[in-house]
């Protein structure tokens, strides 16, 4: 539809109506329309439709934006939804703890519960124990190369991951490393620390299937929350109390979830 010598097509006529004809084509199309009253009638009918639609819809676009569509309202709605989700998650954690208590009373030990925990969590806690005590090489790639770190881990895991920002809890990202996983998958570990030297790790592993609710586990002095979301397994571990870890889990969960 660009060069003058090419025969007229319907696309030329539409471009003429929509004002998208190139200037060097305009004369040819206009000459064609003069010589072809049928095509000219078609074009003027199309143009009339276009103008009617534009006119009738113009009022809609000049209305003031309703309050609920302001971006600040949209964000508030999203926050509320997320809060509701978190409440559900928190409720499932409570249920699990209550269930665990009943299990403990019934069985007298934790073995039934322990055996139900995925391999992923044991691996996560092992990795936690191995690397938090490592004074010289706790991480493979330092947080100063955060962009590279995130890209590298995302590539190896085959999924885009983000390193959650936990500064509001006093934890700073130290860096991360890649780990073998006992299944076929690959795991990554992000490590954070606070001013007291408490270290916290977020362990991620691909190829996970199954449910997505939070689970809590305590092994020795290590607390861990784990969950599975969209094929990625997550485990957040630290030598701290469940109460301190829970709000951090919620923040991590919020930040790593795929947008939906």
């Amino acid at each position: 539809m660009t060069t003058p010598g090419i025969p007229i097509g319907e696309d030329d006529l539409h471009a003429y109506v929509d004002g998208r004809l190139l200037p060097n084509r305009l004369g040819v199309v206009e000459a064609y329309l003069k010589a072809n009253p049928g095509a000219a009638a078609q074009v003027s009918a199309w143009r009339a439709q276009r103008e009617t639609l534009r006119d009738q819809l113009a009022a809609k676009a000049s209305e003031p934006i309703p309050a609920r569509l302001r971006i600040s309202s949209i964000r508030a709605i999203r926050r509320q939804r997320q809060l509701q989700r978190l409440k559900l998650v928190a409720a499932s954690v409570l249920l699990l703890v209550a269930g665990g208590g009943i299990g403990w009373m019934a069985r007298g030990d934790w073995s039934a519960l322990r055996s139900a925990q995925p391999v992923m969590v044991s691996d996560a806690i092992s990795a936690y124990k191995t690397f938090v005590v490592d004074a010289s090489h706790p991480v493979e790639v330092k947080a100063s190369e955060q962009e590279h770190l995130v890209k590298w881990l995302s590539n190896r895991l085959g999924k885009p991951i983000k390193s959650p920002d936990l500064t509001m809890f006093g934890f700073r990202l130290m860096g991360g490393r890649l780990l073998p996983a006992s299944s076929d998958g690959i795991a990554a570990q992000l490590m954070y620390d606070d001013d007291q030297g408490t270290r916290l790790t977020l362990y991620l592993r691909n190829g996970e299937t199954g449910e997505t609710s939070y689970r809590f586990l305590r092994e020795g002095n290590v607390s861990a929350f784990y969950w599975i979301d969209d094929g990625l397994g997550f485990a957040l571990s630290a030598a701290t109390s469940r109460e301190r870890l829970l709000p951090i889990v919620e923040a991590v969960y919020r930040q790593v979830q795929p947008s939906r």
Binding site: K60, S62, E63, P66, L69, I77
Partner: peptide, 27 residues
Amino acid sequence: IPALRRYAYALVKQNDAADDLVQDCLE
């Protein structure tokens, strides 16, 4: 937003339903 509301309205032709669509879209 004005353009989104206009297109949504042209598709569904009801004010509230159109703004529901725009709201979902913005979220």
